[in-house]
């Protein structure tokens, strides 16, 4: 780099190299994060959250026991319950297998809830289903790219 270049040309020269792009973006982020660091202590946790967690250690569905009887509904604190008329039904649902597990064991709460039914499925499929649509599409597209590149080599 020549000495008589103006500061603007120097910046331009550094910025115009594609290899510096990542560093540039990261630097930009760091600057914002450092400036934001001072505001962090003022951010308080909002206590009245949607879909709150309740821990009932005695339950065999711990940590996902949200109450209710299968094929009945249970109160779920959704953002717009009026948009999902059947909200709460998935939350209480237990398949025969998970019902059996729930009756006989005490430490398999996660397995029971991961099996179809439960609060997470309620959120993922019912109230926030569009998120899951987008997300599976991302998976689809990303692997499409990877396999296209992978297969192209011959």
């Amino acid at each position: 780099m020549k000495a008589n270049q103006s500061i603007i040309s120097r910046i331009s020269a550094a910025v115009s190299r594609v290899e510096n792009l990542t560093a540039l973006y990261a630097l930009f982020f760091v600057v914002v994060a450092v400036l934001g660091l001072v505001t962090l202590p003022s951010i308080t946790y909002y206590d009245d959250q949607l879909y709150p967690k309740t821990i009932i250690p005695e339950s065999s569905l711990n940590p996902y026991d949200r109450g209710g009887v299968p094929f009945e509904t249970t109160p779920v604190k959704a953002q717009y319950p009026e948009n999902s008329p059947y909200v709460g039904y998935v939350t209480t649902y237990l398949t025969p297998l998970s019902q059996w597990l729930a009756d006989h064991t005490h430490h398999f709460g996660t397995t029971i809830v991961a099996h179809p039914g439960g609060i997470i499925d309620e959120i993922l499929y019912n109230t926030r289903g569009l998120d899951t649509v987008v997300e599976t599409s991302i998976l689809f597209v990303a692997f499409g790219i990877a396999s296209y590149l992978f297969r192209r080599d011959d």
Binding site: I8, S9, I11, S12, A13, V15, S16
Partner: peptide, 12 residues
Amino acid sequence: LSPYDTVTVQSL
């Protein structure tokens, strides 16, 4: 201005 310099000026 040269192409990249315009960017620098605008960014500044």
